[in-house]
Amino acid sequence: MRAEEFWRRILPPGGLAQRLTAAAVMLPVALLLIWAGGWLFLAAVALAGLLMLWELYRLPWPAALAPAERTQRPAPSGRLPERGALRREFGVVTAGLSGTLLLAGFNSWPAAYGLLVAVAAAAAVVALATRRNPAWAAVRVAYIGLPCLSLAWLRTGYPQAAGLPELDGEVATFAMLAIVWAADSLAFMFGRSIGGPRLAPRISPKKTWAGLFGAVVGGIAVGVLAALYLGLPPPLPAVLGGALACVAQFGDLVASAVKRHYMVKDYSGLIPGHGGLLDRLDGVIFVAPPGALLLWLIG
C-alpha cells in the first residue's frame, strides 16, 4: 500500500483537516525527540535524512511524474538509463550520511564533517563515471547532509564546545526550529489576510511580500522570547531570529524551484496534507547550518 493510500484511509479527506491532524502528531513527537537528545535524537535525524534523500533522488525518475504528465511529457534522453546509476549513488550517499551521524554520536565532529566532504566527493565521482553532472551530485549531499549534521551538533556538540549545560543544546535546537515554524505560520497568515505583490511569481505564485514580512515578525518574536528565557539582551537574538526567518523563506523558494523544474507538486506523499519531509523541512534545511555557525561564532 502506498503512503498516500494509507493516510487517505486513516485521515478524513480535505487538505486542512489532514494538515491539522498531521501537525498535531508531528509537533509533540519533534519536541519529545529534542528533549530526549542523545542517540534517540540522532537516530531520528538519520531517519529523516535518509527519507529526504530518497525523496530527492526519486525526482529525476519517470515515476516521480504524475500519470497525466508522463503521457504529455516524454522522458528526456538518458533519463531511463540513469535509474541504475542513481541507485548506486543513492546507496553511497545514504551509507555515508549514516556514518557521519554515527561519528557525531561519539562526538568525533572533525571526522564527521570530513567524512561528509568525502561522501560528496564520492557521489561526484559516481556521477562523473556515469556521465552525469558531478556538481549536482555533491549538492545533493550538502543539501541534506550538512543540515542533518548541523542539527546533531546543535543538540549535542554545541553545549560541549561552549562548556554549557546540556539544557542549552535543547533550547538552541528548539529555538531554531521554532523560528522556522513561526516564520512559516505567520507568512501563511499574513499572505492570506493581506495579499499584495508576489514575492517570486515564477517560482511560487502564492508567496507575497506581506508573507515575508510576517515570517520576519515570527522570527523576531521567537528570538525575543528565547532571549528572555535565557536572560540575554533581546536586540541581538531578535535580529538573528528575523534573519534566520528570511533564510527559511529562501529555503522554501529553493524547494519550490526544484519541484517546478521536475514538474511535481510535492516531493512525496509521506505526510498527509504536507507532501513529503522535504516539503515540510525545506526551511529547516537552510536554517540549520547558518544557525549552528552563528552559535559557534558567538559561543
Rank of each mutant, 00 (worst) to 15 (best):
P76E: 09
Q72P: 00
A138H: 06
V126N: 09
V141C: 05
S108C: 14
A111M: 15
R88M: 07
A85T: 02
P67S: 09
G91E: 10
A75F: 00
G37A: 10
L149S: 01
L101F: 06
W39Y: 09
E69A: 15
T130A: 10
P134N: 07
A127K: 07
A111K: 10
A127T: 00
V45E: 12
G105A: 08
Y57F: 13
L56T: 00
A122T: 02
R70L: 09
F106A: 14
G38A: 14
L50P: 00
G99T: 06
S98R: 08
P110D: 08
L86P: 02
V93I: 15
L56S: 01
A95Q: 07
L31T: 03
A66T: 07
A135Y: 08
A36G: 12
G99K: 08
A48Q: 10
T71H: 11
N107G: 02
G91H: 08
L149M: 05
A36R: 15
Y57C: 00
V25S: 13
A104I: 04
A137L: 09
A135D: 04
V117W: 15
A122M: 13
P147A: 03
N133E: 12
F90T: 03
L56N: 02
A85D: 04
L101K: 14
Q72S: 13
L116P: 08
L31K: 04
A95F: 14
S108M: 13
T71W: 08
L103V: 09
G96F: 12
G114R: 11
R79S: 07
W109P: 03
A127N: 05
R58F: 02
A75V: 01
F41G: 05
A66Q: 13
I144C: 01
T130N: 11
L42K: 12
A44T: 08
G38E: 15
R88S: 03
L115W: 10
L59I: 00
A121T: 09
W39T: 14
V125R: 15
A85Y: 03
G37C: 05
G37W: 10
A142F: 12
G96V: 10
P76F: 06
A46Q: 15
A46P: 06
